[in-house]
Design a protein around this nucleic acid. Structure first.
Lengths: 187, 187
DNA sequence: GTCTATATGGAGATAGAC
DNA sequence: GTCTATCTCCATATAGAC
């Protein structure tokens, strides 16, 4: 029976924040336990291993993206929808400059020295790419063009997060967002 | 006196390769020592701490970039020079898809849970950005435009390395390179 | 300068009472 | 389900002979 059915959620919440800020390697299960007001030993009731925590976060990110894209899908114009995606990066520029993109930085870290975690890690990107591709298709682009444009879009956003983080300059995200918006208007 | 004046170089060589493949966190000094045919204890004669190894690699990357850009600078046309930069990513697409960009992935990892290592980490990017900006200036762009274009260029290359790595698909780099080359022709 | 041996601390994971 | 206490491993770093 579950007296605290949301405890796994709370743990995942805390883990997502801490791991975004400190990275997966530097975040201990003790850190997560403390931040969640849970005893260290209890963590293992909800997660068999530390890698399982990473999986939970990845799934969480996947859900967040799907939900965000659904909201954006309410906009009537696909060009506006793509711009809305760019504007998310604008809104998050301070936190992204400090800690990197929550998805990109985690995927990059988890990809190292590790075998089978790639599927979970690639899923958020596949979702994002498929959605962008659809928008470009709606703008009349060929399947090939749409795929290339989607790739360019997501790569630019991921890349600028990395650069902004390396330089510690949120304004670089502003600059790139402006560039992408201009591009979208003429595409 | 140094009987093996290049031993520090050998250690840095091995460390650069191993850390690119396995990440900084998962690469032990013992790994590096073995790969260099050096006793573990001897590593500390050349590097005070593990972080010092990271610094050495960052400096190494910085040198590599400077050298590469100098070579590219031999080309007579700045548009061709920018394309040459893109083509480096094409050449390295298999290794980048497997392990990520040697610079970007390392910077992203080192940025987490760490204070003063940022200066070394940002230097390669500053060099790359300044060089690209110069090329766009030579193409007649305003200072502002040139800076924005340089940012877009480097972000795209970094981002596509991350995506290619997450998806395990080198061909995405090919696609993005084609996109950037087209863009450069019309810019 | 180079080595072997070892100290030290930290983090993942488990045991078992409640 | 939740806790405290603890096991165990492993990686950084040091000591000190050669």
């Amino acid at each position: 029976m579950k007296n605290a059915p949301d405890k796994r959620e709370r743990l995942t919440d805390a883990a997502a924040v801490l791991i975004h800020r400190q990275g997966f390697a530097h975040t201990t299960l003790a850190d997560i336990a403390v931040a969640s007001n849970v005893a260290l030993g209890s963590v293992y009731y909800y997660f068999k291993t530390k890698d399982d925590v990473a999986k939970a976060i990845l799934n969480r990110r996947q859900s967040e993206i799907s939900q965000t894209l659904e909201e954006i899908d309410q906009l009537p114009d696909s060009r506006k929808r793509l711009e809305a995606l760019v504007n998310i990066w604008v809104s998050d520029r301070d936190i992204d400059a400090r800690y990197g993109c929550p998805i990109g930085s985690l995927c990059y870290e988890l990809a190292k020295g590790r075998g089978p975690l790639s599927s979970e890690a690639s899923e958020p990107f596949r979702t994002l790419l498929a959605w962008c591709e659809k928008q470009f298709r709606l703008l009349g682009k060929s399947k090939q063009k749409a795929a290339a444009f989607a790739l360019h879009m997501v790569a630019s956003l991921q890349g600028i997060s990395l650069i902004a983080n390396a330089l510690g300059e949120p304004d670089t995200i502003l600059s790139e967002a402006k560039f992408l918006s201009d591009w979208l208007r003429n595409v």
